[in-house]
């Protein structure tokens, strides 16, 4: 029992293009903003300020930009930041895995609440998982 129709391909392609458009709308501006941050010296300020905390996860100060854009905007913004920065593969992995647990909080926490789970509880669970995994990866990843 398996069939493929033109309609399915059309619907799938449409969904894919819509996702790509959503992605482009966030990724491209974020990459530009981060590039401007870097040229203006603002990135250095953010980096210097967050470096001591990022060290807990084996990350450089720059990675804070990725984490914050993921937490407060969404994963597309985090991806845009990664593209505009020059992080090592190890750092990209740690940031990305941490963000897998905790991202787009302003949008996703209310969604979870609607589905019947208290907001603060879901927030704590997701943040704790993210921090715990980040601490472990910072030590374990070569």
């Amino acid at each position: 029992m398996f069939e493929v129709t033109g309609k399915m391909i059309q619907r799938g392609a449409k969904a894919g293009l819509e996702t790509t458009w959503e992605l482009a709308k966030v990724v491209v501006p974020t990459a530009v903003v981060v590039a401007v941050f870097r040229a203006s010296g603002l990135l250095d300020t953010i980096t210097a300020w967050s470096a001591p905390y990022m060290k807990w996860f084996g990350l450089s100060g720059e990675a804070a930009v990725v984490l914050f854009s993921g937490l407060f905007v969404n994963l597309y913004a985090a991806a845009g930041s990664i593209m505009a920065l020059t992080l090592s593969v190890r750092e990209i992995t740690i940031c990305a895995v941490m963000l897998m647990f905790c991202h787009s909080l302003l949008v996703e926490l209310p969604i979870s609440k609607k589905a019947g789970s208290p907001l603060s509880y879901i927030f704590l669970v997701r943040l704790a998982c993210s921090v715990a995994v980040g601490l472990v990866l910072g030590v374990v990843l070569p």
């Binding site: 399915m8 894919g16 491209v28 501006p29 990459a31 530009v32 991806a79 593209m83 505009a84």
Partner: peptide, 19 residues
Amino acid sequence: QGLKGVWNIALIVVPLMIV
């Protein structure tokens, strides 16, 4: 850099959504 990244992801996302 942003456009390049979006293109790389689109190459996977569009076929995937069809599947």
